[in-house]
Amino acid sequence: MAEDLVLDTAIRDWVLIPLSVVMVLIGVLRYFVSKLMRSTQVPDLKIVKEGQVIVRARNFRAGANFIPPRSYRARKIYFTNEENGLLHVPKGQTPNPQAQMFSDPNMAMDMMKKNLSMIIPQTLTFAWVNFFFSGFVAAKIPFPLTQRFRSMLQNGIDLSTVDVSYVSSRSWYFLNLFGLRGLFSLILGEENAVDDTQRMMQMGGFGFDPTKGLSAEKDSLDIVQHEWALPKFEHRAEAVLRKLVH
């Protein structure tokens, strides 16, 4: 491309800048709305306890060789016996997360709120950008890029002849959507930044079942072989002292 496209300054004034400003304002607004709707989550006693049991069992598994055989056996039975061991999950008592969700309206409510504060503004802004600014070339980045960036930077323009360093308005919207985190953490404080990418990750992790962790931990405890490490330490201590004395 020999001759450059000349972008109208009006595009800068009426597309590029308003788009960014609107994105920032919506981010801030969403932060306050979600703050209003946030319910203080009281963690469930059972879940906390199960988490702690898992941590303790993991420690036990890792450090088992450091305690005497008698203590090891007592603990192993305490954790894994079939009647009332800490890690034993009675059959038929594994609650289905889905069923749990329906039985607990608060959980569904929280999900709804999360979704509301995330999806609705995003759909609206996307529709708005699409409606008013579709097809604009809004900016030009000052360095050349390879063809692979075309789908990232020229979303909405189906021209293969335009140089890749031109950014379409819709792509500018996406860049803003994912790139404003730093700015938000400046405006709203470190932890408050609205991070869409992170939230999407969280959505995927929903429905984690702690009882699964319990039985997995039990299985790995069952196969642990106990070999008391301490007798070795007498020799090692001897070696250490010998080095110290001589």
């Binding site: 450091f66 301490l230 007798p231 330490f233 090692r236 201590a237 001897e238 250490v240 002292l241 110290l244």
Partner: peptide, 15 residues
């Protein structure tokens, strides 16, 4: 057992 654990202390503290 106590002796063994004293030994491990020596090992861990480098005597």
């Amino acid at each position: 057992m106590a002796k063994k654990y004293y030994a491990s202390t020596i090992d861990l503290t480098g005597g």
